[in-house]
Design a protein around this nucleic acid. Structure first.
Length: 837
RNA sequence: GGGCGUUUAGCUCAGUUGGUUAGAGCAUCUGCCUUACAAGCAGAGGGUCUGCGGUUCGAGUCCGUAAACGCCCACCA
């Protein structure tokens, strides 16, 4: 028997191990349609947060639902090596131990990184278990495992051979803190206060100068020209002349280029090809020299003369002071401008000329755009609007910088020997070949996740069966990094979309709508929530409280209220279990049994429909209402008078079982506990069959009849409450189910002679007269007057509506009939009120 | 500059293809320890759906427009 009180800790204790032991999570059910999801692999850098809890709970809801529907389900787990994020964390950890990455060397560092990975992957496993996720661990993968390495190399080599990967010297986004190149997606633009420094560049051979505005004076050591717009009359005559670069005293040409916008700044722009992407383009057009003046760590190099060795910002400060001293600083104008920062380290990005590997995006992106026009084979986003995000990215995309100057990651499969280059899956046998030092962007491997985890490039059975995946679930912030890249890689290498549906959820914010962040200290650890309220409560709250695609404001009160809901289910189950042991007599279904069975059937229908459309919020509200209001508050209360009848006990058990099954994808633990009380410890709800809607089980007449009874009861109770009628009142009934009504109201019918003293209550076939000592207060009078006015207005409105020929002609017949009925009852009520006054 | 989202009860959110009196949780008020549950039960009050205009017999829902808040992308000498 269930304990007297719901205890989430105890309830969630042993099931997970049991499910694992029985192999319920494993795919491979024979003669069943496959259904697959791959987990977005969490980074092995830390603890799972509420966002992970939401993301994985959604997937578990779907996979458990499909499993119960009979599908051969695969939910494939795994973790991401997260190249840059992990490398930073490991480096920090080493630092605390007094070790430096460089001193340790590549191999030793990687050993440490693998140790880190093992530890954090273990943490993640523990957290997944706490959350109750039905992951098939026999298929678990890691983005840096050997099979993945093979897939990554295969992809790299093929793209290289197809001309879609190339090495190039370009301006890339450089992170001076972690000393690596980044992709544009890893750069976050933030508005920061700064200055426009107006600097005087004297013109050679003339007594004039040009006023050049820049936000980054420290890059002037790398200036190789000044540009003006050829159409700009102010400066056109200067094109071809030379200017003197202050401090450095180097002569640089004044060139004409459309890049210079006469409306911006002073119309003159300094050209620093090695430190600005636009300037680089200008430099290419005019054959300018590219002069790198900043070191990889963000300090100035020897070309910065006396500023060499200073940090770029320190240099800026000193340089500006010197320029001012020497009269070169014309103006210092305060502005707010948008500056790129590293997603991981937070430092300002340095646009930096360097040799990197790139993926040529245009052809790959075009293929996605084309595929999205194919209704049969496109990736279907839920909500659909997120497709635009992907398509837009594909339209404007530019080449993807994939090389990273890190150690933790897939090493680029390229070898060099003198001037020769070799790109291949395996290293060259002969001596003298040196492998590229760099590793690949972590997303280069995660982009292959949906198919590489299933064995690709080998033609495996898994791949054949579970690819394309049915669903992918992730947050909208990951679309550019991951969803887009999986899509183009999948189309290119498998000729198929990676997944049929892409469910996009929002971010979890705090109660005030702010992002969770370390600096605000507003973080919530899902494990703490589970400890306090249970995984079942957390999962239900996260998956049913909002619609997909919109952000969630985390509200602990709502988790607490979910706990109450589960407690309610627990107690209702106790009630059913306690009474199933009763001595019973055979009986036909009662009307109230038929009523709840009909409601139950309709609930199955609607819940299934919304589960299939991934509208879990709707599933949540339907189940909540059905369970609490219909089953607990109404049916169980009515059933209390039939606890010796077989039909009622069977109905209680049947409906409770269905409720547990429909709840199970959301609350796996508590439903399993109760189910095993009902059917034995050796059974499991997670492999039971999901309820199937059967329209033959709809009893429409009884449904309406009992609905009337419920309204009738409520009306009488309202009257009792409003008129403060105590226990001693007399009632005469002209209604079906007299006995049930008396039981529910705890009253007994008493006939009274003077029928006029009573208050009449009518709902269709249900009529009652309540006799009580009337004390009409001022309040009552006001209330009646108010009702009278409202009735009159409503009658007028309805009469007008029904007099409208258009309405009568065009509106559905039932609606017109309803309006007529309502009008009649309103008129009747008005009459009653007038009479009583 | 381009795009998207949000705006519904005191708070947090639902609201299907336009169709009864716009829903829920929490909060509030009233009455109840009724033998599953006081973390509960029985009732009640509270919103004209951001503003304006339009389509329609009928608009929270569709169209146009304005505003506030938020997000994404691009640009930024």
């Amino acid at each position: 028997m269930l304990d007297k009180k719901y205890n989430h800790l105890k309830t969630e204790e042993n099931h997970y191990e049991n499910w694992l032991k029985k192999g319920y999570f494993e795919c491979g059910k024979k003669d069943a349609k496959p259904f697959s999801i791959v987990i977005p692999p969490p980074n092995v850098t830390g603890k799972l947060h509420l966002g992970h809890a939401l993301d994985t709970a959604l997937q578990d809801v779907i996979i458990r639902f499909k499993r119960m529907q009979g599908y051969d389900t695969l939910w494939l787990p795994g973790t991401d090596h997260a190249a840059i994020a992990t490398e930073i964390k490991v480096t920090e950890k080493l630092k605390k131990e007094g070790l430096s990455k460089r001193e340790l060397g590549r191999e030793k560092f990687l050993e440490k990184a693998w140790e880190w990975k093992e530890e954090y992957a273990q943490n993640i496993h523990n957290q997944w278990a706490k959350l109750g996720l039905s992951l098939d661990y026999t298929k678990e993968r890691f983005t840096l495992d050997d099979e993945m390495a093979f897939a990554v190399k295969t992809v790299f080599v093929k793209l290289y051979e197809d001309g879609l990967i190339y090495q190039g010297e370009k301006i890339i986004n450089w992170d001076p803190a972690s000393e690596t190149a980044l992709s544009t997606e890893e750069v976050i633009y933030k508005d920061v206060p700064g200055y426009f420094y107006h600097i005087k560049y004297p013109i050679v051979g003339e007594d004039k100068y040009l006023d050049v505005a820049t936000t980054r004076p420290e890059t002037m050591f790398g200036d190789t020209a000044l540009a003006v717009n050829p159409k700009d009359k102010r400066y056109a005559n200067l094109i071809g002349k030379k200017a003197i670069l202050p401090v450095v005293n180097r002569e640089i040409p004044i060139i004409g280029d459309i890049h210079a916008d006469p409306k911006k700044g002073t119309g003159v722009v300094k050209i620093t090809p090695a430190h600005d992407p636009n300037d680089f383009e200008v430099g290419q057009r005019h054959n300018l020299e590219n002069i790198v003046v900043i070191n990889k760590n963000g300090t100035m190099n020897e070309l910065a003369l006396k500023y060499a060795g200073l940090d770029r910002f320190e240099c800026r400060e000193k340089l500006v002071a010197d320029l001012e001293k020497e009269g070169y600083l014309l103006q210092k104008e305060a502005i707010v401008h948008s500056v790129g920062h590293s997603e991981r380290t937070g430092v300002m990005i340095e646009p930096y000329l360097s040799k990197q590997w790139f993926v040529k995006m245009r052809p790959l992106a075009d293929r996605v755009l084309k595929n999205q026009k194919d209704k049969e084979n496109k990736v279907n986003f839920v909500p659909a609007r997120y497709e635009k995000i992907m398509n837009h990215w594909m339209e404007i995309t530019y080449d993807w910088c994939i090389s990273r100057q890190l150690w933790w990651g897939h090493r680029i499969p390229v070898w060099y020997k003198d001037e020769e280059i070799y790109v291949g899956i395996n290293p060259k046998e002969e001596a003298g070949w040196v492998q590229d030092e760099d590793v690949l962007d972590t997303w280069f491997s995660s982009a292959l996740w949906p198919f590489a985890t299933l064995g690709w490039p080998l033609k495996t059975e898994l791949l054949n069966k579970y690819f394309p995946n049915d669903v992918l679930v992730t947050g909208y912030d990951i679309i550019p990094f991951w969803v887009n890249r999986m899509t183009f890689q999948s189309l290119y290498f498998t000729e198929k979309r990676p997944f049929k549906y892409c469910l996009i959820h929002g971010l979890i914010r705090d109660k005030e709508g702010r992002k969770f962040s370390k600096s605000l200290g507003n973080g919530v650890d899902p494990m703490d929530v589970i400890e306090k309220y249970g995984a079942d409560a957390l999962r239900w709250y996260l998956t049913t409280s909002t619609t997909l695609g919109t952000d969630i404001r985390y509200d602990e009160e709502k988790v607490a209220s979910t706990w109450n809901f589960i407690n309610k289910i627990w107690n209702a189950s106790r009630f059913v279990l306690l009474n199933l042991e009763n001595e019973k007599e055979a009986s036909e279904l009662q009307d109230e049994d038929k009523w709840i069975l009909t409601k139950y059937e309709k609930t199955i229908h609607d819940v299934t429909k919304f589960m299939e459309k991934f509208e879990f919020q709707n599933v949540g509200s339907i189940l909540y209402q059905f369970i609490w209001e219909d089953f607990c508050d109404s049916y169980i209360e009515m059933a209390k008078f039939n606890l010796d009848k077989e039909s009622t006990l069977n109905t209680l058990k049947e409906v409770l079982t269905g409720i547990l099954k429909m709840l199970h994808p959301f609350m796996p633990f508590v439903t399993e506990s109760i189910y095993q009380e009902l059917y034995g410890k050796e059974t499991s709800i997670m492999i039971s069959e999901y309820p199937v809607y059967d329209k033959k089980k709809i009893y429409q007449k009884e449904l309406e009849n009992i609905e009337d009874l419920r309204k009738f009861i409520t009306k009488i109770r309202t009257l009792k409450q409003e008129k403060q009628i105590g226990k001693d009142y007399k009632i005469s009934l002209n209604a079906p189910h007299k006995e049930l009504i008396e039981n529910i109201l705890k009253c007994q019918e008493q006939l009274v002679d003077d029928l006029n003293t009573g208050e009449k209550i009518t709902i269709n076939d249900y009529q009652a007269i309540i006799y009580y000592e009337k004390k009409i207060t001022e309040e009552d009078k006001l209330k009646l007057e108010k009702e009278q006015i409202e009735l009159k207005n409503s009658i007028l409105k309805r009469e007008k509506l029904l007099a409208n020929e258009n309405f009568v002609a065009k509106a559905p017949k039932e609606l017109v009939e309803q309006e007529q009925k309502k009008l009649a009852s309103e008129k009747k009520r008005l009459e009653e009120i007038c009479k009583s006054n």
